[in-house]
């Protein structure tokens, strides 16, 4: 029995997914021992947030076949919403330091970001993607890609026009002593940001696996005609998927506001990082995207630590090129049908 487990484990380690995950874990442990646990903390916080953006991107790609290049702008919408909700709350807290808002105010701001993202996503479907789909689905991937690029430019410039180009940031969400774990001090904001992302990713996974609506979304992604003939309302599922995907990006933007202030093009970095994740883990693979997010985060943190802060895009980009050349289906993509093959 135990021999079987060992054999299975070695077989798994030798697959592309197993190999890269094993290497990632070893690198993470080695770097943590060498430089200190803060590196691991950074990886986990960045990875958790990246997982939210990347699962949204995967959803758009896997269910709707839209290569979304405006996803970062929903991150921006999330951080902007959270900023405008939290600024009055923090002023109120300054005057009333004993109010319940000290604890729950940030949650209101982050929830606001989530709702803002969902609404923005629904509006984009109604005004942009829906009309294109009804007009023609010929050459859909290319057309929708161009549309998302245009949407991105529009949203960035709308932000600049209405709210200005300056940084809109906050000092922090939660005051209080940093938590100390194994000699590393983690600020409350970081710890809670990670917990929020972990809870949302878990809820999202359960939603997709067990609920009637989640299964309908998966059904649409696997066979849209099949979904239609069993009575799934495609238009409704598409609307829901887009607002869900955008809400995931927005909640990430909202809960990272203490680290990354909101400004017009703030979404570019999370967008590129999320695309690295999606290419690394295989298009349309949701669980793979979560694992991939932590791997890309690790790569970024290690690069900043050992190579230099200016290199954090160069190394992941080089890796993506290698993956596209040698394993275009992504490291977890072997047993999943490519979405764009349909």
């Amino acid at each position: 029995m135990s021999k079987n487990i060992v054999a299975d484990l070695t077989a798994w380690v030798r697959t592309a997914a197993g190999l890269s995950m094993t290497i990632a874990v070893i690198v993470a442990i080695a770097a943590t021992i060498h430089t200190g646990p803060y590196l691991l903390v950074n990886t986990i916080v960045t990875g958790g947030m990246l997982a939210l953006v990347a699962t949204g991107l995967t959803l758009m790609l896997g269910v709707l076949n839209i290569p979304m290049f405006a996803h970062g702008e929903y991150f921006m919408i999330g951080s902007l919403t959270a900023y405008y909700i939290f600024t009055p709350i923090s002023e109120f807290i300054l005057e009333h330091p004993d109010s319940w808002l000290v604890t729950f105010g940030p949650f209101i701001a982050i929830l606001g970001a989530l709702i803002g993202g969902a609404i923005a996503g629904a509006i984009s479907e109604k005004l942009v993607f829906g009309p294109l789909r009804r007009r023609s689905t010929d050459n859909w991937v290319m057309n929708s890609f161009l549309l998302t690029v245009g949407l991105s430019v529009l949203l960035v410039n709308l932000h600049q026009l209405i709210f200005g180009a300056d940084f809109k940031g906050i000092v922090g969400y939660w005051q209080g002593m940093p938590i100390s774990i194994a000699g590393a001090y983690i600020s409350l904001d970081r710890a809670l940001a990670f917990i929020i992302s972990a809870v949302i990713v878990a809820l999202f996974y359960l939603f997709m696996t067990y609920t009637r609506t989640g299964m309908a979304i998966r059904a649409v992604s696997q066979d849209i005609t099949g979904a239609e003939i069993v009575g799934i309302d495609i238009e409704k599922i598409v609307l829901l998927t887009i607002s869900l995907a955008c809400a995931l990006a927005a909640v990430s933007g909202g809960s990272l506001l203490f680290m990354i202030p909101s400004y017009p093009s703030v979404g570019l970095e999370p967008l590129y990082m999320a695309w690295f994740v999606v290419i690394l883990s295989g298009l349309g693979n949701i669980l793979g995207a979560v694992v991939g997010a932590f791997m890309v985060a690790l790569l970024k943190v290690i690069t900043v630590e050992y190579v230099g802060a200016g290199w954090d895009f160069v190394v992941p980009s080089a890796l993506i090129m290698l993956i596209l050349i040698f394993k275009p289906s992504g490291i977890f993509g072997s047993d999943v049908r490519g979405v764009l093959d349909k």
């Binding site: 998966r218 696997q222 005609t225 239609e228 003939i229 069993v230 009575g231 799934i232 049908r337």
Partner: peptide, 23 residues
Amino acid sequence: SGSAVAKKGISFVSEEMNLFVNM
């Protein structure tokens, strides 16, 4: 639409079967 027809009680078994292959 196809989904509305399905709700009325007509069930279509297509030639390509249109199964959900990863379920």
